[in-house]
Amino acid sequence: MILRERVKKDFHIHIVDDDASVRESLKALIGGEGYGVSCYASGQNFLDHSNGVSGCVIIDLKLIDMNGLALQRALITQQAEVDVIVVSAYGDIEHAVESMRLGAVDFLEKPFDPEQLLNRLDHLAHAADAAGRLQRDARQRAALIDTLTPREKQVLSGIVEGQANKEVAADLGISARTVETHRVHIMQKLQANSLAHLVRIWLEASARKEPIAEAS
């Protein structure tokens, strides 16, 4: 228990949201679990204090001064060693995919389950002690990709590019309903519980594999 508390105390959480009530509620929720928490009312406010930061930053997609994705890009430029979770009341496939491509570990749609966020933070806080397990997970996910049919791999490729079902259907010459059926099967085969989870599985697996093959 003491070790667990120490891990949380050393894993600092940064909340970037222009809504004061959201900042305070998240601070109370996360701080109550033993994490150190800092709050910022704008993207620039966080960037002004981001030199040498560590831990995890929770970024609202629509900030008062910049897009949350722009803040992610700025952190990449700074080579900030932080995990990123993007939250939004206006989530869509395009933004979810882009945030994951920029390295976000999750994309949560408001209102989200507090336990889901706390479980994610707990996983991240202990990630340094689980490097071997994460490598095994990547290998397992690469193996799951191999269970997809050639057509499912094509549909998956469109999904992770941020395409809507109709766009994937037009590219492949099939109906949007067929694309949706493939998408359901893909989610089941890859054991994905959300779009963000699906994209994360593909990104982690693709780091160990060649690009998704096209159907013959």
Rank of each mutant, 00 (worst) to 15 (best):
S88A: 03
V7C: 01
V199F: 06
A213E: 13
A28E: 07
Q44H: 13
A143C: 03
A213Y: 02
A41W: 01
T178G: 03
Y40S: 05
D10K: 12
V160A: 02
A130S: 10
E109M: 07
E109R: 04
C39T: 14
I2Q: 14
W202Q: 10
A127P: 00
R23P: 01
M1R: 11
E204C: 08
M187K: 09
R133N: 11
C39R: 08
A176F: 03
V53D: 02
P211H: 10
I58W: 04
E33A: 09
F107N: 00
F112S: 01
P111R: 08
F107Q: 00
E115S: 11
Q188K: 15
G91A: 14
Y40Q: 03
V84R: 13
A207T: 10
E81L: 14
D17E: 13
Q140V: 06
I201A: 03
V199N: 02
Y40G: 03
S99M: 01
L117D: 10
L71Y: 02
V22G: 00
D65I: 00
G52K: 12
I2W: 10
S206F: 01
G103N: 10
R183C: 06
P150K: 12
T77S: 11
L190N: 09
G173I: 02
I201M: 05
M100V: 02
S42I: 09
D83Y: 14
V97F: 05
R177P: 00
V84G: 02
M66K: 06
F107W: 04
D17F: 07
H12D: 03
Q140K: 14
A215S: 14
Y90N: 09
Q140H: 12
L102H: 09
Q44A: 04
G34S: 09
G158E: 05
D137M: 10
R133D: 12
R139G: 11
L61R: 10
A205H: 08
A205W: 10
M100Q: 13
Q135Y: 03
D18S: 11
K166Q: 13
D146N: 13
I15H: 07
E167Y: 04
L190T: 11
T181I: 05
D60P: 00
E180A: 15
C56G: 02
Q44L: 10
H126M: 04
